[in-house]
Nucleic acid binder design. Structure first.
Length: 558
RNA sequence: GCGCCCAUAGCUCAGCUGGAUAGAGUGGCGGUUUGCGGAACCGUAGGUCGGAGGUUCGAAUCCUCUUGGGCGCGCCA
């Protein structure tokens, strides 16, 4: 695994600073943090640093003067750097040599499909919990966004050198399960010809009737003869299993799988809940008041203490959640990530407070909020209420738009910003659709290779390919962008922002399309053809790698 | 009432955690093909970064205030 490109540049500058200090041209009481960025205008150079401006105060010199000094030492006996120039108020623009890029490309070829893989994760154990929708109904598009983001994030972290596990937490305990069972039981009676009064807070969706029908198809009406208690137990279990099955299928269809499905009920079975409460009690976080049991967190981030055991002895949802997270902590993760729907943001401080008590501060326990999705059709927003709108479920949207487009649309925006999902646009198999733009590039490259094969051009091998055949400005632009992939992975992983990958791919592919239009790959010039093919093979690997992280398919033909 | 998120081109959004003349896509307008995939490429128009102060060499980015929108504040889950 090689170092990211900017690290190399940083080292070159650092060396230059050392030489400047040794010669007494700069004081440098402290070694500054060197930040490498890209110049606004590409023609200015490949990299830039504002170092001189940052040093101006401590050196008590004009930034321009400092920049000149650094430039002098930078160019000193160095074949990686072509030029280093001062611009504006004290920017240092650095142009790397053609050989520098060719050497780097060579390394990319050697790494093959592993290029981009990083070790910033230091093999840390990380748990990503996402979706975790209650098993009381089918997944809607909001869950779909969470699924896409969570899954892509785990792939990304894996790529960045983390040891990743994924988990879906099933809230299969409590009132909502009772209500679910009751709702199905009532629909069942209804289907059997009985008159029932359906409660206002029951689950009214059509899927409940479907489940009831399943029971009739399977067992007929024999459950009518059971005592209510027994019937409810049956319907509760059956409904939950049926809905969970549906959720699993929807997710599988959406190419999202989990390492573990964690049942809330299991926390009871192994006494985790009591142990978690006792643990908190030992730490002095628990007290009794008004016949209920409270957890004391008002002094940390949350505004008020919260009830964990109600007057009636029943536990709150929060209580189970504490136990669940205690369980996560006990499993020894270095990093715990929760992806929640944005509507739960009010719940964030109390969970953070508890985790903090368990020794997991904000650096190791992170809650990522995934904002809502607004579906649009014909320029108008589709209502997302449970009763209206045919396209509110994930599976309906996937059926209409396709997995690739759906996933890409969920991932092309930062997760914490509201998303307008334009169904008409996502459905188009045409230029306006950004998914195809990237996939098309991959298919196009594959097509070029097919052409090369037809013309008996051998697959380019590193030993037999002369990379100095790559001379065009567009080729260097492409190489530069390919080389930036590794940094993109690291940056995205560290900031937990998957949408950067989508943007990167779009930019990468744009350079390719432009290059392709201007320069022919397969020509009579065999040497040059091989060099260009090798470049395209690297590009193809990066596109495939990036799309795989996003969970978007990588077509060889379209 | 208190708290969180958002506001950038007609529309949808980026903006690398304070840097150079604020960028893409889409839509508008005008172009590009006897050659590897035109699902592509090139050009052009489009902006008081919601508003007002402040911090400094420098602010879309940080602080305060303000306006408009989304959401949350249960012994619900």
């Amino acid at each position: 695994m090689t170092r990211p490109m900017k690290e190399t540049v940083k080292q070159l500058i650092s060396d230059a600073l050392d030489r400047a200090r040794a010669k007494g041209d700069l004081n440098l009481a402290e070694t500054p943090d060197i930040i490498i960025e890209e110049p606004k205008d590409e023609t200015l150079g490949d990299f830039a640093t504002t170092l001189a401006m940052q040093l101006a105060r401590s050196e008590k010199k004009n930034p321009k003067v400092i920049a000149e000094v650094i430039c002098g030492f930078l160019k000193d006996g160095n074949d990686a750097i072509d030029s280093a120039q001062v611009a504006g108020p004290g920017f240092i623009n650095i142009k790397m040599s053609a050989d520098f890029f060719r050497k780097r490309l060579r390394e990319v070829v050697e790494q093959g499909r592993d290029f981009g893989r990083s070790d910033v994760g230091q093999n840390k154990k990380v748990l990503v919990e996402f979706v975790s929708a209650n098993p009381t109904g089918p997944l809607h598009v909001g869950h779909g966004r969470g699924a896409a983001v969570g899954h892509a994030l785990s792939c990304l972290l894996n790529m960045a050198g983390y040891d990743v596990s994924t988990e879906y937490y099933i809230n299969d305990v409590g009132n909502q399960m009772n209500m679910l069972g009751r709702s199905t039981w009532l629909r069942y009676k209804e289907l059997a010809g009985h008159k029932v009064t359906f409660p206002d807070d029951g689950y009214k969706g059509d899927y409940i009737r479907d489940i009831a029908q399943q029971v009739i198809d399977k067992d007929g009406t024999r459950h009518l003869d059971k005592p209510d208690e027994d019937a409810l137990t049956f319907f509760r279990q059956f409904s939950k299993d049926s809905i969970l099955e549906g959720i699993r299928n929807d997710l599988k269809e959406f190419r999202v799988e989990f390492d573990r499905w964690f049942s809330e009920a299991s926390l009871d079975e192994d006494d985790s809940v009591n142990r978690a409460i006792n643990w908190l009690r030992d730490k002095g976080f628990v007290y009794e008041k008004d016949g209920a049991t409270w957890v004391k967190i008002s002094e940390s981030q949350d505004a008020a203490d919260r009830v964990i055991i109600k007057q009636g002895g029943e536990r709150t949802y929060f209580c189970s959640d504490i136990a669940y997270h205690k369980n996560k902590v006990d499993r020894g993760y270095d990093l715990i990530l929760d992806l929640w729907g944005a509507d739960h943001h009010g719940y964030v401080p109390r969970m953070q407070s508890v985790l903090k008590a368990m020794g997991y501060g904000e650096e190791v326990f992170k809650i990522l909020l995934v904002q809502f999705v607004a579906l649009k059709r014909g320029g108008k927003k589709v209502s997302m209420s449970t009763r209206s709108g045919e396209f509110e479920t994930l599976s309906d949207v996937v059926a209409e738009v396709g997995v690739d487009a759906t996933r890409f649309f969920f991932l092309m925006r930062s997760a914490d910003s509201h998303l307008d999902f334009d169904l008409d646009l996502a459905k188009k198999e045409s230029p306006e659709n950004p998914v195809y733009y990237i996939q098309y590039a991959h298919a196009r490259i594959c097509s070029v290779f097919r052409t090369a094969e037809k013309q008996k051009v051998p697959f380019p091998e590193l030993d037999t390919t002369d990379l100095s055949q790559l001379k065009e400005a567009e080729e260097f632009a492409l190489i530069k962008k390919i080389l930036a992939y590794r940094e993109c992975i690291e940056k995205s992983a560290l900031t937990l922002e998957v949408h950067r990958i989508a943007f990167y791919l779009h930019e990468l592919v744009a350079i390719f399309h432009s290059y392709y239009k201007q320069h022919r790959i397969v020509t009579e010039d065999r040497e040059r053809t091989l060099a260009r093919l090798l470049l395209l093979d690297c590009l193809r690997n990066v596109i495939a790698s990036g799309l795989s992280i996003l969970g978007v398919s990588v077509p060889e033909k379209m």
